[in-house]
Design a protein around this nucleic acid. Structure first.
Lengths: 344, 344
DNA sequence: AAAAACTGTGCAAACGTTCCCAAAAACGTC
DNA sequence: GACGTTTTTGGGAACGTTTGCACAGTTTTT
């Protein structure tokens, strides 16, 4: 049970033309007489002709589709990035295939392979927190698959990248905690593999340094799986508590919400006495209790920029050799001492 | 700059066989000698052969792709449904193309057309809150495109549907409010067009009736755009306040969070005195203040069931004429009188 | 007035598969 | 060893496009 549409052949037959002429009229290519073009266009309109993208793809050896790899779409940061990607992609005639790693390296690799076998024209990827080995990406890239990284980018991979100003975002958040009088500021963060982890750690350290606060490694907890497992988060929080932090700077969306959740669950008595500043693009922060200061990334814009770069690579006539790393500014949204959090 | 892979032809040439033989060996079809099959398979493995899905699609006149239409992916309910869809689809060899309506009928139509022109094999759709006219879907369906509705389904459309037990979910939530002593229970809900709106209204009414509470139409507020615009929500809340509700039953994810947000913004003094029970699949409810009672839908399962039904339609030998409407149970998660909400 | 250049069109091949049909090979039977 | 039957293989068309090339018709150049 398949549904049929009219093809170029049908139009050609109906109009007594050849398929080539019809094709040319439709694509507005080459020199073709105004007259025939109008004729064809009118008839195509009438029968509601839609070019078969599959045939076109086969012929042109490209699919007009872009693969996307994120940790999970149920994460405001990533869903906003995706919205940005789509806003550009659809305009330029591409559709997108979204896949999720759930922070698993294995899944990431599987997804990339799936996408590659679907003959995508290009790939937009934010690495999973588990990922260390990206040789499989290098192989594909070497074979000619355009790749643009965003958010979580590898260090030694020559291609376009789009990231937030993680250093500054982390610095601002930490400084904010310091300026609100916090003395013992912990740092809960993602897997050490990730670029964002490193950059945000540096921003945290720089803020401490600026105010002459000693950096204590025991105040930094890493979550290898990016907080995908509750146990992971709860352990991290448990290990932090004995050091009596009065502030925590958290480095990702998932971790931020997860950490508050864990705090409330395991240490409800102090949950409201620890100030929290964290990276998150959740649009529900205003509802959270305890409330928090958040670092928002320009997610939508990040998606747009990454997509533009990717499409420029896909459509480049000659291999691209000049690459850029775009750095977008974050925004610090200070905690609101709202009614719901009087006792803070 | 395109990247090349080996094709069936290459294999045939290298092995001195015909393409038909290679194809048969690869697809394990027909009768083919064990020997040649092994030979081909081994060689294919060696050169890492991947069948070109585009060529296959062209030949078989199907794309092995499923279109999905939801309001927005940045909504836990829908992102969970999508996860459910993917879990089945990928296993069965389909990939999915996700599109968002942002509750706009125009966008919905645009998306459907886009997907249809991408020659999807089937469509999974939850209608936008604005949608009233679904004739364009009927046309496609009549032409042979399999469609399965989930969550927001039309009344008069003969096909498979998967929904939650909206009546019971609404009844339970409302009853919960009543049993916690609330007397004036308002109902904030979605556009009147939607099936879920009607069913949940009925559940709300039934619960009131059971406890002999008079149903007052002025306590019901509809949001035509499903709460996509803040103004819409704030107006609705403003109109509700004069009736002094001590409880509100809210009928969707977006509205639930939006309503709390609006309450906190415009009427902070009473925000914590109004008990809230609402449909939401947010995994962050535990963080919300004021806290609330939530009705959770089996979103993941809904995605799975819908996909199974859709694939069964796609792969059916003869046109399907027997349709089912699967109804899945919701779960009531009672408000936790947690630390963060002492003053409730 | 013939040669050259340009226009608009059609023919046919190609993209990588699948699959019908027929041919070839292998086997069994008398 | 001739014949029929079964198994295995190859040829080639088809899916719906795009596009290089050729060719006819028209216009320009010399």
């Amino acid at each position: 049970m398949r549904f049929e549409t009219s093809t170029i052949k049908d139009i050609a037959k109906a109009l007594g033309l050849s398929t080539s002429t019809v094709s040319r009229a439709l694509r507005d290519r080459y020199e073709i007489s105004e007259e025939t073009k109008k004729l064809v266009l009118a008839y195509a309109e009438k029968v509601n002709y839609r070019a078969n993208p599959i045939a076109r793809s086969l012929k042109e050896r490209r699919s007009y589709s872009i693969g996307i790899i994120v940790s999970e779409i149920a994460n405001n940061f990533f869903s906003q990035v995706i919205n940005g990607i789509e806003s550009i992609a659809y305009d330029r005639g591409y559709h997108v295939i979204i896949t999720q790693t759930h922070e698993s390296h294995k899944q990431e690799k599987l997804n990339v392979e799936h996408l590659a076998s679907r003959s995508i024209d290009g790939l937009l990827i934010a690495l999973s927190s588990e990922t260390q080995d990206i040789n499989y990406l290098r192989d594909l890239y070497a074979k000619g698959l355009p790749i643009v990284f965003f958010d979580r980018v590898p260090e030694d991979f020559e291609t376009h990248k789009v990231i937030a100003n993680n250093f500054k975002g982390a610095f601002d958040a930490t400084e904010h905690l310091i300026l609100s009088g916090k003395k013992t500021i912990a740092h809960l963060t993602n897997s050490e593999n990730l670029s964002i982890t490193k950059e945000r750690l540096k921003g945290y350290q720089a803020a401490l340094a600026k105010y002459h606060i000693e950096f204590k490694p025991e105040l930094v907890k890493y979550c290898q799986h990016g907080g995908m497992h509750n146990a992971e988060l709860e352990t991290a929080v448990q290990e932090l508590i004995p050091h009596k932090p009065d502030g925590i700077f958290i480095s990702s969306d998932r971790l931020t919400t997860g950490c508050i959740m864990a705090l409330k669950k395991t240490n409800p008595e102090i949950a409201h006495r620890i100030a929290i500043a964290g990276f998150t693009n959740s649009n529900l922060v205003e509802l959270f209790s305890p409330s928090l200061t958040s670092v928002k990334q320009p997610a939508f814009e990040m998606g747009q920029v990454a997509t533009e770069l990717l499409i420029s690579m896909i459509e480049a006539k000659r291999p691209v050799t000049e690459f850029e790393t775009k750095i977008l500014n974050t925004e610090l949204v200070r905690m609101q001492k709202a009614l719901g959090n009087r006792f803070l």
